[in-house]
Design a protein around this nucleic acid. Structure first.
Lengths: 228, 228
DNA sequence: ACCATGAATCGTATGGTGTACGAGTCAATC
DNA sequence: GATTGACTCGTACACCATACGATTCATGGT
């Protein structure tokens, strides 16, 4: 049963090639490792990423990974940041709607995390990578243009951060276990004597996540930069 | 080196005892297991809770735990809910300030989670225990009294939930790794060319978490139930 | 007195994990 | 041709959750 990883190591062609990236089994590289890690995380979830599986998928030995990467933690950090890249829209001509910019960036942020559900719960406890910092920087600049004074800037940023993270983490985990949710709501129905109110509004079932996110975000923005 | 757990099993006294709870080594019980698990989580963090350590701490064999508990997941669920109990304040005489009630409950919620920093990141991906449901039920009733109509109730609850979770998870994980944070801010200073704005406000360092939480919460409540 | 039952406990074994270590391969350089 | 350094990988170790099969012990029936 022990996987006899066949010694099918491709014999390299005799003549020297000056451009080695066209190999049929491309060599290991940080990029390839991270891309595969993201794939694995998407398909097998956060517990499904193991160094062994990662190496198998790359057609390499387990320890080869450690040449490119310090440890598994680092793989998470890099995969996370890779997934959160944001292409800043070309700065339009004039003083356009700052609010639309903020909403767009944050909704894109949330969408990126929901596309890779493991990322949301990972983000808060990992160090901030360049793509994340980039988003924060952009957010800060936009809010600045919107008239938020410097004394309130950190408060504003963290409030938005908190809101987006809470919404996305909750959505991501409730999404994946919708069966559990239905079971929970069912159990709740049985216990409706104890929890009559949330049972009657069917809190755990028919929530419009996108709508909730958008409305709450609007409330928050109203508070942070009231329309003059 | 293998721990020879001495066979010091106390010989029970000859005459039958009707009240067995006074034994010097109390027998295992769900309560004792969960209480010890919470202790372990507090001191060693979420990765520090292992079934072996738990058993050692309880003076029992590892597999004995599995008599009382299905699996490790269940231990997390129970420890989490145990930590989130809320003693509803005695209903005061009249139509008192609903807003104060909501703020109090949510701040207590946040404080409970911060007292056990592992709980915040755990909560969103575990099934909701009775104590959590109790808080949601209470929140729902209070908002109802505040005039939130039923059509908006789920939106209101989830918005508040999202906000509290995001704030607490972020705070809990940033709190524990304050050294990392300082290092991150330092790295940021080195990269101030790329992130000038968030560098200048020292975003990663001098944030008043409690203040941010309170202010953002006020904004949200304003939006959910505007003062007439 | 005997023993059957079932709750509770525990030792051992299995298969999984991250990663330290040292030995290998190979292209480029002297 | 020898040396170096980037890179790969097999083996080994320590630790993990937990399945399985004893073992202990209080109880109740006969």
């Amino acid at each position: 049963m022990a996987g006899k990883r066949s010694g099918a190591r491709k014999k390299r062609s005799q003549q020297a090639e000056s451009t080695p990236q066209l190999r049929s089994e491309p060599p290991l590289s940080l990029e390839r490792i991270i891309a595969t890690a993201v794939d694995l995380l998407d398909t097998h979830g956060v517990d499904g990423l193991t160094m062994r599986r990662l190496a198998d998928r790359l057609g390499s030995g387990v320890m080869s990974l450690y040449w490119h990467v310090d440890n598994k933690e680092r793989v998470f950090d890099l995969a996370l940041d890779a997934v959160l890249a944001f292409r800043e829209p070309a700065p339009r001509g004039e003083a356009l709607d700052w609010r639309a910019d903020v909403v767009h960036m944050l909704e894109d942020w949330r969408a990126s995390m929901l596309r890779h559900p493991w990322s949301a719960s990972l983000l808060p406890r990992r160090t901030l990578g360049p793509n994340i910092l980039n988003r924060l920087e952009l957010l800060s600049r936009t809010l600045s243009k919107a008239g938020v004074i410097e004394a309130n800037m950190n408060v504003a940023i963290w409030s938005l951060w908190n809101y987006v993270m809470g919404a996305t983490i909750t959505r991501a985990s409730f999404d994946r276990s919708i069966d559990d949710l239905a079971a929970a709501q069912q159990a709740l129905t049985r216990l409706s004597a104890h929890y009559p109110t949330i049972e009657s509004t069917r809190l755990l079932l028919d929530s419009d996540w996108d709508g909730v996110f958008r409305k709450g975000l609007d409330f928050l923005l109203d508070g942070l930069a009231p329309k003059t």
